[in-house]
Computed example of a mutant assay.
Amino acid sequence: MSNLADKVACLHAPMDKALLRALSLILGFFHVAMLMWDPEAYAFAIGGFNSVISPLMIWAICSSMVYGLSFKPYSWYWQILFSPYFSLSILSYLTYAYFY
């Protein structure tokens, strides 16, 4: 691995916990299930789909699956793209918007 990949891996080291991975998977599966069950009700609950929310939601769900299944990308740019910091913050926001 390159030096930059090692630095990004060190930034992700605090997130390398089984409970956080399980939370990531649960949040990802929850939002996929709600979206598939009734897309109109889900869209209404989170404030609607737009050109910002939709891509971020797809990206966060995909990233949560990569992170939750313990896949560790080799290159630094894939590590940043599938960062659990981004995915968990987006999914947490969507969960908050869904319930409140």
Rank of each mutant, 00 (worst) to 15 (best):
Y85H: 09
A60P: 01
S83M: 06
F44Q: 15
F49C: 02
S51L: 12
D16R: 10
G68D: 08
A41D: 12
F99V: 13
G48R: 08
G48K: 08
Q79P: 00
I61M: 04
P73M: 05
L25D: 08
D16K: 07
W37Q: 11
Y74S: 14
L56E: 08
Y42E: 11
A33M: 09
I53H: 06
L11R: 12
N50Y: 03
L91R: 03
S92R: 00
T95H: 01
K72L: 06
V52G: 03
L23Y: 10
W76E: 11
M36N: 13
W59Q: 03
E40R: 13
D6G: 07
S87Y: 03
M65N: 05
A41P: 06
S75H: 10
V32G: 01
E40V: 10
D6R: 08
L19K: 08
A13L: 12
Y42H: 12
C10L: 13
H31L: 03
L35W: 14
A33I: 12
T95I: 02
G47Y: 06
T95K: 00
F49E: 09
L69K: 08
A60T: 09
L88Y: 05
L4V: 15
M57D: 06
W78D: 07
L81Q: 04
L88C: 03
S24K: 04
I46L: 02
S70G: 04
S64P: 04
A33P: 02
W37K: 12
A22W: 12
A33F: 13
Y93F: 11
C10Q: 13
Y93S: 02
M57N: 07
M1P: 06
I80R: 00
S63A: 14
S2A: 11
G68I: 07
F71A: 09
S89M: 14
L11T: 12
M65Y: 12
G48A: 09
P73T: 10
V8D: 00
Y42A: 05
I58Y: 11
A45I: 03
V66D: 02
S92L: 12
F99N: 07
F82I: 05
A41Y: 08
Y98W: 10
C10T: 14
S92W: 06
Y98I: 01
V32A: 02
K72M: 07
I26H: 00
G28F: 02
H31K: 05
Y100V: 04
N3P: 01
M57Q: 14
P84E: 10
S70N: 15
I26F: 01
Q79L: 01
L35M: 15
